[in-house]
Every structure is written in C-alpha cells, then in structure tokens.
Design a protein around this nucleic acid. Structure first.
Lengths: 223, 223
DNA sequence: TAGATTGTTAATCGATTAACAATC
DNA sequence: TAGATTGTTAATCGATTAACAATC
C-alpha cells in the first residue's frame, strides 16, 4: 500500500524546503513549531502538520520540529541533491535575466547548463557557463546528470525542445513559454506556468470579493 | 445573489480566451463544440461546458458555440480590453528575453511600460519603449491605464516594487520572483509562480505514478 | 504533573465527473 | 422527427479544516 502524497502537498513540501534552507542556519538549535511555519508562509498550521506527516520525521509533541533535521528529511523525501542541477533553455537574454530574478543557489538549485534555440546566441556565456546551441542538449544532459529543465524558449521552439529533452532523459519540465495546446512526450512531467492566463485572470479580480478573501490567488496547470 | 465563479474556472476561462484568440479567424463561420475545446486543451468536455455556463452566452444544443461570439463574450466577462495593457518590471535582460518567450500580442495582451530596479538599465529600450527607473512607476502607471503587472525583479526589490505598484493603483500582480514569505499590500491580488518549488517538486515525480496519472502536474500559489 | 504541540481521524468544503432532461 | 450537444443537477472525488487523543 503506497500512501500517495497529494499534489498540493508535494508543492508545499518544496516550499518548506526552500524556507528551511534559508532558515536553518539562523534557527539552529531552536525548535520550529507548525504554527510558525504556517504564519511565515501564509498557511494554516493544520495544513503544515498534515503535510509534514507524510515525511518520515518525528516532531516532538509540545516542542516542535528540529529545523535542520526537517530540512534534510525534506531534501531526501523530495529526492534532491545538495545543489540540485537543472538545465535552462531559452534565449540568452531571458536566461541571463532569470539568474537575477531567480538566483537558483539561494534555493538549493543550480543551473548546470544553458541552451539557446537562437543561433545568434552562440558563444555567449552566463556566469562563466557557455550558452550552447539547442541541438547539443541531448549530448550534454546525461553528462550533466540532470533530470529537470526550465524552458523559456520562443513558442515555435517548444516542440523541438521537448523532444530533445525527452531524448536526453529529462523527466520533469517547468514551462514558462505559453503553450496553447499542450502535447508533450509520453511519460514526461510538465508544469505549465501560463503567464497570459494568469495575467488575464488578474484583470477581472477586482477588490470586492478577492481582496476580501485574503487576496488569495491561484494559477497553473495540468497535462 | 452573486454566483461566484470558482478560481479554477476563472483561470480556464482565460485559457479559452487565449485559445479562441488564436482560433477565431480560421474557424470563423464554423461551430465549436465543447468536446473540441476539451480535446485541444486537455480537459474534459463537461468541465468546459460547466465553465462556459458562467459566461453569458448561449451555445446551441446539438450545434455548439460560435467561436467569435464566445471570444468576445469571454473578453467582456474577463474585463479585458482589445489589447490589454500591463506593466513589466525587472532587469532589462529578463524583460527583453520575455518578449521572445512570451509574445504578449499573440495572447491579446500588451506591455504598456517597462521598469527596471537596476540603475545600469537606464536608457535601454525594448521594442521602442524606454525602460524606465522603478521610482517612476507611480507617475506612469495611472497614465498608462494599467491594472496588472508582471514582476520579475531581483528578490531584494520585491517589497519596494509592490509598494510602488499599490501606490500606482495596480490591483493584480503576477510574481515571477521567488518570494519565501509573501507579504503584499492590503487588497492586492498576487499570483506567485514559484519556480524553485515547481522545479523541486518535479525532481521526485518519477515515471511510476505521475506518468501513469496522465502526467498531470500542478503548481502555484496563494496569498 | 501541567502545558504545549504533534499526528491522525472525522467533518467540511470545493471542484470535477457523471448523468440526463432540455432543445436546437 | 432523429441526432447531437448543451446546461444543470446529483454523485464523486480530493483537499482543507476542525477536533482531539497521544505524547513530549
């Protein structure tokens, strides 16, 4: 009997991992209560406890969790390595810009390779890493030992990119490029961040109901 | 009695709008069935019908929907203007790169202004639009008539950016910058695309269950 | 022991799926 | 009229919230 972890929980566990990654030094020694985590992350404490109950760690009733222990338990549970590698694919501008917007190292992640679909990006470097042409992806991906990719290519390069990633053995893809009709390779796990949809659904969400409902907003994506 | 539209539905309605925006020329004259929309977008036909039943439009039983009519009905329902304007905020690299990754015009959206938090971005232009310094946001936003923003600034500029956006009357924000502890201004609607969480949760999702479950993957974010 | 907080079970809430009557 | 597809109601499914016994 495999107790399956709800999708929503998996995603929050990743958030706890990020949070603990930033916390566990300054909080070393002290105990962390579900209530604190909940307050910091804008969740309910019950949700936090329920989520953590899937992770093989023991919190102490009346005391809380050990931040460091919890961090490593989550890391193991999520199958992450110390600085988990991913490949980033897109034009050099967006890839370079994203290193500022999303400094992967702060979150326990590391861009292990950059690839561009545009021929005029040849030879560019980002943080001392050369931006390689898209076709070289297959050769490199296995060598880099990555299993996830961040994709931000132009819309017309999506299909080719996914093919190459599949061939390279990458199983998980975070897709920033808006794709109208999702058709990804068999067995591949793709999370779509749909910027146009998110923006459009924000337009109508006027003060009245939404602000009242604690300004909660959702997003995202299936298959 | 206000029938409230589920969040998930609002988001899908935005997707239908994108889809119809691309379709409604080539499909003009023909009828569009819920089954077709569902197949294209990877949804069930019941979901599509249920979603559309919130929109004041009449599909013809046995016939389907008129694509053009549906497009405009959605546009009105979602409160969108013909090319809905938004402001984009971040370093010049990421903003310029995103115009390739996410060509807003294809989706009925239009970047009306670019703002950067970095002083060395002063004077840059993107598509003939000057990238303005972040502090000028307040002055410009109302003039540009925008109510939504795409934010991709560096993590340490998030708070300032949200303050300025609030002051400028922007109510909806799509946040690409990873934020550990969300604290946005009162009454503001923020959708967080959490790249680190999405990437981390993709690592563990190995073939076995996930691929089996139609490779569905979710993401995202509250408050 | 008393106080506090966990882990887990039951109740609620919301969203999706199934079924079908209404209608073009 | 017959065939097809909508709109809507009821049933299911999943995730969140509430409650509380277990335990440090």
């Amino acid at each position: 009997m495999t107790t399956t972890v709800p999708d929503a929980t998996m995603l929050r566990l990743s958030r706890y991992h990020c949070f603990l990654g930033e916390m566990h030094d300054e909080r070393a020694g002290t105990r962390l209560r579900s209530r604190e985590i909940a307050a910091e992350l804008g969740l309910s404490e019950e949700t936090v406890r329920r989520d953590l109950s899937f992770v093989p760690i023991e919190g102490r009733p009346g005391v809380g969790y050990d931040p460091e222990e919890l961090f490593w338990a989550l890391q193991q549970f999520l199958d992450l390595s110390e600085l988990h590698p991913f490949v980033a694919i897109g034009n050099t501008d967006v890839l370079r810009g994203l290193t500022v917007t999303f400094p992967a190292g702060h979150f326990g992640l590391k861009a292990a390779g950059y690839f561009s679909e545009r021929s005029d990006d040849a030879g560019a470097t980002i943080d001392d890493l050369e931006v390689l042409p898209l076709p070289e992806l297959t050769t490199w991906a296995s060598r880099l030992g990555v299993n996830v990719a961040l994709v931000a290519v132009a819309p017309d390069a999506v299909d080719e990119t996914l093919e190459l990633l599949a061939a390279a053995g990458v199983r998980g893809v975070l897709m920033l490029t808006p794709v109208l009709r999702p058709r990804h390779p068999e067995g591949m796990n793709v999370t779509y961040f749909r910027m146009p949809c998110a923006l459009k659904s924000l337009v109508g969400s006027d003060a009245s109901d939404q602000a009242a409902s604690a300004a909660a907003s959702s997003c995202c994506a299936d298959s």
